[in-house]
Nucleic acid binder design. Structure first.
Length: 492
RNA sequence: CGGGAUGUAGCGCAGUUGGUAGCGCACUACGUUCGGGACGUAGGGGUCGCGUGUUCGAGUCACGUCAUCCCGACCA
């Protein structure tokens, strides 16, 4: 963990400058709060997409695509939903530019004003439900299980690279069901998909739970969330799944005829994860030397750096490396031989570490003579000398170890920063130290708001399946009776 | 929208009481290097965010304007 970060707990911007930009992950765009994702960073996102797509398909979800522009009138239907997004919408009012009559560049052509303004989607519930109305007439049409990968725009007052950019990439799933029970089960199923993905692919431990009414998605009856802890002890909401009830069905008049011939409104869910996960990855696993990627997401899993003086040495080493590369690729690993002859080995080591490549193999003249190779793992920065004979199996096992170890390390960190707090005085002190605080809460929005006003801490979630939280007690703030503990934390 | 700060080379910065623009990294060429971010020599690159004003003269002073960053309210 970077020293600077330890001192200034919330200053990850330094990481972005040091790691992200120099690591070719992303750079700030000229457009306020937007980001450019460079090829290496995008390759990581593509790996996330591929994993999630495979998991979605197992639950019967199919991909679809809906328009970027949403007519303003669509937004006037679901009042609560609109109230949640109205303050941060980009609005298209014209469709043409013209040369400035004064000769100063280009201006908006006032004659090209749109009859009805278009909203750049901040999320797609409204346009999707307008469409679903035409798709659904009978119980036989249900359920509808669609997901779309797209960009959305939210005109945030303040942005933060990866965590809250004005434009971001995400997936949003939207499902329609015949019964409340089925929809609730779907919302629950999808949050579990996210939790599996976070744990097994991102190597990120997460807590699954319900959002408090205050923190719920605009228009939802219930919001499920996966909450992760970053290395500065702050919480990051890494994914959400909403049970929308019949709110959208009623607002957009989506009814179906049931088996008894009666008209009924459908039940809905929506769920999404975004490029925020890239931020989670950086902040949860990164160290002083840069990014640490779990092998499951690394665009390059093994990088090979040759060490040589003469052309003869170079050729012999590269030939050996090609051999090793082929044997690793048989096992499905992605391998890069860094054969750039303008850079010295030390520079290459540092650069690949910055990019988070899990395993590095270095071979020099000495190794070549001995039939060995230097194997370095990114997560612990350990180096060992190993026989080239059978190196494919060694590397295969090492990658599995690294994946596991990264998760175990993050889990140990998180668990050592979760603690029970039972008094208000203690709470005010403990919350400053970061981490998750398990506390009793009286269940009222007023108490939650007062705690937030006084400490900036919010209820990150009401954990499900957590035996630790299931106990009687008294609210830390009001002293009223409580039936379970919830997680309080400072969040991003 | 409130409070604070900053705009000078690709990046990070210096620039004194106004006197005609500099440093580090990066870049180009050549040479020596190459098992943990090499070194030497020689080069190239800037209408100092924009506009107006004061002045013989503005990176520097005044006013305006735009943008960015940090702290609040908002948020995946």
């Amino acid at each position: 963990m970077a020293k600077e970060v330890t001192k200034r707990s919330d200053d990850y911007s330094q990481w972005y400058d040091n790691l992200v930009v120099k690591a070719d992950l992303a750079e700030r765009s000229a457009v306020r709060g937007c980001m450019v994702i460079k090829p290496y960073g995008y390759a990581i996102w593509e790996k996330m997409q591929a994993s999630l797509d495979a998991m979605f398909k197992k639950t019967g979800v199919q991909n679809a695509y809906f328009p970027l522009f949403i007519p303003k009138s669509f937004f006037s239907r679901e009042a609560e939903h609109v109230a949640g997004f109205a303050k941060e919408c980009a609005v298209v009012t014209h469709h043409r530019l013209m040369n400035d009559p004064d000769g100063k560049g280009v201006v908006v052509d006032p004659a090209a004003k749109l009859e009805e303004e278009l909203i750049v989607r901040p999320t797609s519930e409204t346009i999707i439900w307008s469409t679903y109305k035409n798709w659904i007439t009978s119980w036989r049409d249900l359920p509808i299980l669609c997901n779309q990968w797209c960009n959305v725009v939210r005109w945030e007052m303040r942005t933060r690279l990866f965590l809250r950019t004005a434009e971001f990439l995400w997936q949003e799933g939207h499902t329609a069901h015949a019964t409340s029970k089925e929809a609730e089960a779907k919302a629950y199923e999808m949050v579990q998909v996210y939790a599996d993905f976070a744990r097994n692919v991102l190597a990120l431990p997460v807590v699954v739970g319900h959002k408090s009414p205050n923190e719920r998605f605009a228009g939802a009856l219930d919001t499920l969330t996966i909450e992760a802890m970053m290395q500065d002890g702050k919480a990051l909401q890494a994914g959400t799944s909403h049970f929308l009830g019949q709110n959208f069905a009623k607002s957009f008049d989506v009814q179906y005829t049931n088996k008894e011939g009666k008209q009924e409104y459908v039940w809905a869910t929506s769920w999404g994860v975004s490029t925020r996960l890239m931020g989670a990855l950086i902040m949860a696993h990164g160290d002083d030397n840069g990014l640490v990627l779990p092998p499951s997401l690394a665009p390059i899993q093994v990088v090979m750096v040759p060490i040589y003086k003469t052309e003869g040495e170079h050729d012999a080493i590269i030939a050996k490396m090609e051999e090793i590369k082929a044997s690793l690729e048989v096992g499905g690993h992605s391998v890069r031989i860094d054969d750039r002859d303008t850079l010295r080995p030390g520079f290459k080591f540092a650069e690949w570490e910055l990019k988070g490549v899990p395993v590095r193999i270095a071979i020099g003249p000495r190794d070549l003579a001995n039939g060995t190779a230097e194997l370095a793992r990114r997560d612990t920065c350990e180096k060992i000398s190993t026989q080239v004979e059978g190196i494919a199996e060694t590397v295969d096992q090492l990658l599995k170890d690294i994946q596991q170890n990264i998760y175990a390390k993050a889990l140990a960190f998180r668990d050592s920063n979760i603690r029970k707090v039972d008094s208000w005085e203690e709470f005010k002190e403990e919350i400053k130290k970061g981490g998750f605080l398990l506390c009793h809460w009286d269940g009222t929005a007023e108490t939650e708001q007062k705690i937030k006003d006084e400490t900036k801490a919010t209820i990150r979630c009401i954990p499900i399946d957590s035996a630790v939280c299931e106990e009687e007690g008294k609210c830390i703030y009001s002293g009223q009776p409580s039936h379970r503990r919830v997680i309080f934390a400072i969040s991003y």
